[in-house]
Design a protein around this nucleic acid. Structure first.
Length: 269
DNA sequence: CCCGTGCCCTGGCGGC
DNA sequence: TGCCGCCAGGGCACGG
């Protein structure tokens, strides 16, 4: 599942590959991906130039002449750049460029979303308006204030993009391992010092994973042919039955808030 | 406001 | 071998 490091890797590659391309046409094979009214979307996007690719949390943002295209890859969304190759059954949206190349949105689960918003107001509209800050920009006192009365688990808090943006299932597990905090801890039991450790660890994990091009595992292979290397750095995620790298205790897998969760039962409290 | 549940989807896997 | 049923999971709608 693409989280902040994987989305950032896609952003950087797209910036390199499709900046200044002009969208001259679009083919829709599964139109539920598009959140706007379809006729309007097709008309609006035609002849728009791609000026820049931004990212906020797990959202990709294509900056066009008059619009911002907001893309969420959800579980398995990925992009490919092709020319005349056959259409794959999982390619749902194809943007044709003036150069003859095309950008293809590929998504086995069909969970991803694409929406087109006015370039002048997109930051003040759904979905970006309600997005929390990324760990590196989130002051830990502020984080502490947001969660100190919450009755849900710390894992669910860290997955909540309204509170903190960019973490998904993999990096939450890794963040909590580094913080030595158990994922089932009730948020209201997190101390100011714990909050400081969590924000620090989350920042470290995301920075390191981004430098390595993200994590490439079975459930999220790669986009644009880019393979990440952070899977070699994972401490607990997908490591059930293996020894904890700190204390050698066996890593266990459990369910927290319906999510598969990996934890060292000795290190994390 | 807060929290839990179900939904969207389909490839892959366990069970028989 | 083949089929069935279930699971994964980000984010939202909905109900209590």
């Amino acid at each position: 599942m693409p989280e902040l490091p994987e989305v950032e890797t896609v952003r950087a590659t797209l910036e390199n590959e499709i900046k200044n391309e002009v969208i001259v046409g679009i083919d829709l094979y599964y139109s539920k991906i598009i959140q706007n009214e379809l006729e309007w979307f097709i008309k609006a996007i035609t002849n728009q130039r791609i000026h820049r690719i931004d990212r906020m949390g797990k959202y990709l943002i294509l900056i066009l002449d008059d619009f911002a295209m907001i893309i969420h890859l959800r579980m398995e969304g990925k992009f490919y750049i092709k020319t005349n190759e056959e259409i794959d059954k999982h390619e749902h949206v194809i943007f044709h460029f003036g150069s003859g190349r095309n950008l293809r949105y590929h998504d086995v689960r069909k969970f991803g979303t694409i929406s087109l918003l006015d370039i002048n107001t997109y930051l003040d509209e759904y979905p970006l308006i309600q997005l929390g800050r990324e760990p590196k920009n989130l002051e830990y006192h502020h984080f502490f204030e947001m969660i100190k009365n919450r009755k849900t688990t710390i894992k669910q808090i860290l997955l909540d993009q309204h509170i903190i943006a960019g973490l998904g299932n993999i990096y939450v597990d890794e963040t909590l391992f580094l913080s030595r905090i158990h994922p089932t801890r009730v948020a209201s039991s997190i101390t100011l010092e714990d909050a400081k450790h969590i924000i620090f660890s989350a920042t470290q994990v995301l920075d390191k994973a981004t430098k390595l091009g993200g994590t490439t595992i079975r459930s999220y292979t790669s986009s644009l042919g880019v393979h990440g290397r952070f899977q070699n750095e994972l401490n607990v995620h997908m490591k059930q039955g293996e020894p904890c790298p700190v204390c050698q205790t066996e890593i266990i897998k459990m369910k927290v808030g319906g999510r598969g969760t990996y934890v060292c039962p000795k290190c994390q409290h």
